[in-house]
Simulated scan of single mutants.
Amino acid sequence: MNKENMTKNQISIEEIRREELIEEMERTRFHRYWHQVKKDWPIYVMLIPVILFFYFFRYRPIGGIMIAFKNYDNYSDTVGNADFYGFYAFRYIMFGPQATAFWQAFRNTFTLSTYGLFFGFPIPIILALLFSEMKNEAYRATTQIISYLPRFISTVVITSILGLMLAGGNQAMAPGLLNGMFVRWGWIELGTPMLSKPEYFRSIYILSNIWESAGYGSIVYFAAIMAISPTNYEAAKIDGANKLAQIRYVTLPGMAPTLTIMLILRIGETLNVGYEKVMLLTANRGSEVLRTAEVISTYVLKLGNIGIGASAGSAAGVNFAAAADVFNSFIAMFLVLGANFISRRVSDTSLF
């Protein structure tokens, strides 16, 4: 009985001490926070520009979403004074006179992004694996720099290069380099303007995106490979694993968290096809190519600039353009949430 009483007393004393410790931590919580801030104040000072950037350029503009729900047809008026129209703009572009153009742009956006994800996502990973196998550091550094260069070239220059290389040519003028190769191989006929043909646009857009961003995108995966302990490879070699087996059972599992995060982020950008490259590639190419080239971003830009049945410079289409962009953003948000939910269920890695 004495031992039991002593044990109970010890437990009660430990509980009392634990409660006192919790109370003490709660009482000194703000003091500890302030002490941490004073200790690492340079880091918090560096954080101020980031906070200001996100406030002014990410969170503050969110109020502009209200344009999609109001009849904003006059630039001199304010969004707050405009009449509330509810979901009229959404119904108009999805099921009204603009339905055909909107769903064509949405379908093109989804198709381009899906093909880009399917074909473009593995290329940086393969490049990173190849870079990691290069033993000569000077050669590896040179090839990496060459693969990064297209990322730092202006989109205008990239599209100009593509226009020159894919020029159709005729009897008086030689075709572009790539166009001439395709003609020589019998893929197309001489004089075919590939950038003006809707059947070629998606391939040109996706392949040029891979060429432009694959090298730069391999940096993250290369860093993940370099972080894997060499002892894992040594153990695999002792077990008789060849190079492909080492990649399968050591490299890829070691890269899994990075691959998961990057895949979720890439899925979130599925419907985020920028208007710059599309408009530059289709400029002065005729309206036929827009059947496969028109995306949500170019649709929103044109709708906001010229309106619906209005002259250029009016605000008649701003609320409809905002509605299209809001719908696009909501779909992208649900794609991120769904991908993150699935990742959290099947693995231990997720964004949140």
Rank of each mutant, 00 (worst) to 15 (best):
Y59W: 14
D40A: 07
I51H: 05
K39S: 07
Q144D: 09
A89R: 08
R107W: 05
A99T: 06
D40R: 13
D73S: 09
F119V: 13
E20H: 03
F106W: 00
K39V: 04
W103L: 05
I146C: 04
F54T: 14
E133D: 03
A99P: 02
H35K: 11
M66A: 14
F69K: 06
M66N: 13
F56E: 01
L117W: 03
T78D: 11
T114A: 10
I62R: 00
F69E: 04
S132P: 11
H35G: 05
D73H: 07
H35Q: 11
D83M: 02
F121A: 11
F53R: 01
M25R: 12
D83S: 03
S113E: 02
F84N: 09
K70S: 07
L129T: 10
M94C: 02
F106I: 00
L130H: 05
N74S: 14
L127S: 09
H35N: 06
I146F: 04
R91A: 07
F87Y: 14
A89P: 01
I22N: 10
L127F: 15
L149R: 14
M46S: 06
R27C: 09
M134Q: 12
F131S: 05
S113C: 00
G64H: 02
G63A: 05
N108M: 02
L130N: 09
F84E: 10
Q36N: 03
E26D: 14
Y115C: 14
Y75H: 11
M94N: 00
E20C: 03
R91K: 13
A82T: 11
S154M: 04
F54W: 14
A99R: 13
P150S: 06
T143G: 03
G96D: 09
I62S: 00
I126M: 05
T28L: 11
L117V: 02
A68R: 10
L130P: 11
N74F: 10
I125T: 12
Y148A: 06
F102V: 02
Q144Y: 08
Y55N: 02
H31I: 13
T155Y: 09
Q98E: 12
D40T: 10
T142H: 01
E26W: 15
I51E: 04
R107E: 01
P49D: 04
R60L: 13
R32A: 06
R107C: 00
W103A: 06
Y33W: 05
I93H: 02
F152G: 01
I126E: 01
T28R: 12
F87A: 14
L130Y: 09
R60A: 12
T155R: 10
F152V: 05
F119E: 11
M25P: 00
I153P: 06
G96P: 04
E26L: 15
K39W: 08
S132D: 15
F53V: 12
Y115Q: 14
R140E: 13
T100L: 10
E23L: 06
R91L: 05
I43S: 08
L21N: 04
L112M: 12
Y139E: 05
D83H: 03
A82D: 12
Y44N: 02
N81G: 08
D73K: 10
M46T: 09
E23W: 00
K38S: 01
V156G: 12
L112S: 04
Y44L: 03
Y92T: 02
Q98R: 08
I48S: 03
P42D: 06
T114P: 03
T28S: 12
L149M: 15
Y85L: 07
